[in-house]
Design a protein around this nucleic acid. Structure first.
Lengths: 227, 227
DNA sequence: TCAAATATAATAGTATTACTATCATTAAAT
DNA sequence: ATTTAATGATAGTAATACTATTATATTTGA
């Protein structure tokens, strides 16, 4: 399985880049370092000029890979969701019991990525923190409908639908499986953010994690016996 | 009650502005028109220069009221949450039954603001749309901890805690009242966004609203009989 | 009512951002 | 060895996000 993971080619909409960064050394350095820099300084402060300096390359060279930093963010987050989807599929495949499958899925999508699998140039743990802090900005734009039409959010949506389907398998009578699924995925990011910055309005901390909270949630919503 | 509403002075952290916009005609025009413009063009495209032109005033005059557009966004969203809190308090005050109170609270914070009460220069319905589309950007920044310490998010947090308390009143055994409350408030904004832009991953539409969904959620989580 | 204070407008200027364009250099492939 | 492709260096543009200065209205209060 580890070798499988190593050979995994994450699937990303090819309109998100001008030149596939996976095909060159420079491309990988752009992606790898942009993750670290966006995490360090935040998306607003991050610029291609600063990135060029950091990787001892040139601003103009970076523009040959990505049109602008918005597209780069879409690329990075697509990579993340695609990577997570792969783990979800792989992690739930051996489980035939719907309840066990769903629980495993919840764990995968709500847990913090603490382990840097570091099989490549991408630090998944840092990328996870970027997704928590910046993902909303990728779709809260005036261009969202156009970009959605272009398929820029396809991976994310497919992930939500996978979990929706698992919800239905567990309880076909539950009326809002899509909303529940999208709420869990977005809500987990939010709770992770709150436990770092607004501790007063979350119960999540070092012992109670967003995973604990959401496992309890689906348990009560879907798995409680006849009422 | 209508006159009460009219005399309501929404409470806002006074570090969010340089000069209170409520005290002058120009200030009110700045606030009123910035809401319309941010809604029309999105926060990224919105500038003080454009706003100045739109209200036939000068960029430099706007800078005398607000340090920058980030502070203006914090001001507008604070105004919104304060206004909503007022409605929450007023709307739940007459209800003594904890369950009825909580349900009423959920309705107030998850429903779309369709009616423009238009008792003043602020269009609450448009402001509500701004909150859906832009609120996350006000706290997903590198300055969030500093700004939180300054109290810029105090109203929002207090609203979350009010609903948390109502949750506890309904079911003192529920383990995650703060996370549930924060999830409902943020989740409602998210579901409203999804029903406009990512319809495939939500069950919300014209008939099933976020309110329907969240009322069912608390019903199942807190109000279901002994299990 | 007239002077002083205050609010607003107009204009100019700066550093940075988010690019585009051009040309030079280096590396790779045929 | 030559062409092609990739990268780097430099320059330039329009817009943004301001700051500063000065001019002009408007308000107020002695």
């Amino acid at each position: 399985m580890d070798t499988l993971l190593k050979n995994l080619k994450v699937e990303i909409n090819d309109k998100l880049f001008l030149k596939d960064p996976e095909t060159t050394e420079l491309g990988k350095r752009i992606v790898g370092h942009s993750i670290l820099m966006i995490h360090e300084m935040g998306f607003e402060q991050f610029t291609f000029k600063k990135l060029g300096k950091a990787i001892h390359s040139n601003e103009s060279s970076i523009y040959r890979y990505f049109e602008n930093k918005h597209k780069l963010l879409l690329y990075l987050t697509s990579w993340y969701w695609s990577w997570l989807e792969y783990h979800l599929v792989l992690g739930t495949l051996p489980l035939s019991d719907p309840e066990a499958r769903l629980k495993k899925a919840i764990i995968i999508v709500t847990d913090e990525i603490s382990q840097d699998s570091s099989f490549d140039h991408i630090n998944e743990s840092v990328l996870n923190k970027i997704v928590v802090a910046e993902y909303s900005k990728s779709y809260l734009t005036k261009e969202v409908d156009l970009e959605n039409k272009q398929g820029y959010f396809a991976v994310y949506k497919r992930l939500v639908l996978r979990i929706r389907d698992m919800i239905v398998e567990v309880n076909k009578d539950y009326l809002y499986p899509a909303s529940l699924s999208s709420m869990i995925i977005e809500g987990a990011l939010h709770q992770h953010f709150l436990k770092e910055h607004f501790t007063a309005i979350t119960d999540c901390d070092l012992t109670t994690t967003p995973t604990t909270y959401f496992l309890n949630l689906i348990d009560q919503l879907l798995l409680t016996y006849e009422r």
